[in-house]
């Protein structure tokens, strides 16, 4: 028992959809994995909590309250490896859409806007508070990628987190490019690893895994306008849904832990 890898799951500002995705493995795969790892804390699936040493901590959700910093630091302190999983934890995700606005409290909560529990700062990735060793990107994260990363760590190998754009995965599966269909797409700057299901279904990539390490944002705006037919304003803001913290205009530019 004791030589199993001890893992724990923690959640911050998020919808907990990635934890649900985890339970979607299906019994067979999940039980198989449990032969190799011991889950010591997982709020979505069990009630126990621990203070013991953790080999791998999986953190979901963005860092959006200063008050959470201490909890994150405590997790870092007792974990050998910290993995941020899901868009919120890796890049701030969709939560970071509020970062360039200041009227959302009133818009969303009306007369309750000033309630103390609604107080939060801008949404940042976990790596803005503590050192993160690996990101498992995506909204939600991809359970096969999760298995790949965990397997590599169980075998003492360094997992490879893709730093190539979604275009690569469209080419590998020979998807007709959205631009060849008179549409637009963010695949050229979006971090891959998903297998590019959206363009294959006829939908532009939204970059839910954030950007690659060095996205050419200037060229993106140009292509969105010239080939995608978007207005300048829309071309400039188009990628913000999932990349508010990755863009050049981010309030606090994040550094990819995968470098």
């Amino acid at each position: 028992m004791s030589d199993k890898v001890k893992v724990a799951y923690f959640d911050f500002t998020c919808c907990e959809g990635c934890q649900i995705e985890m339970t979607n493995f299906g019994d067979a795969a999940f039980l198989e994995l449990l032969n190799h790892v011991e889950v010591v804390e997982f709020r979505e699936a069990m009630s126990e909590k621990t203070t013991e040493r953790i080999n791998i901590a999986f953190i979901e959700g963005s860092f959006s309250r200063e008050a959470d910093r201490a909890r994150l630091e405590e997790i870092r302190e007792r974990s050998d490896i910290v993995i941020a999983y899901g868009a919120c934890a890796c890049t701030g995700g969709i939560n970071a859409l509020k970062n360039h606005q200041n009227d959302y409290h009133e818009e969303v909560y009306g007369k309750d806007a000033k309630m103390p529990h609604l107080d939060s700062q801008i949404a940042l990735p976990v790596s803005a508070a503590i050192k993160v060793d690996y990101n498992i990107n995506g909204c939600p994260m991809d359970k096969d990628e999760f298995i790949r990363v965990v397997s590599h760590l169980v075998h003492g190998k360094q997992p490879v987190i893709p730093n190539h754009p979604v275009c690569v995965e469209c080419k590998l599966r020979e998807t007709v490019c959205r631009y060849d269909q008179g549409d637009h797409c963010l695949g050229m700057v979006a971090r891959a690893g998903c297998g590019a299901p959206c363009p294959a279904d006829g939908i532009p990539c939204e970059a839910c895994r954030g950007f690659i390490d060095h996205p050419n944002e200037e060229s993106l705006v140009k292509v969105l306008m010239e080939k995608g037919g978007l207005s300048r304003e829309r071309a400039e803001t188009r990628s913000r849904m999932f990349t508010a913290n990755c863009r050049a205009d981010a309030p606090e530019k994040i550094v990819s832990p995968n470098k």
Partner: peptide, 22 residues
């Protein structure tokens, strides 16, 4: 200058033959 480093030009090329092994 406008390159995305997307590799599409490599991946569609009939004479490119590089691969990665994992």
């Amino acid at each position: 200058h406008d390159c995305f480093s997307c590799g599409s030009c490599n991946l569609v090329c009939p004479t490119c033959y590089c691969f990665d092994v994992q």
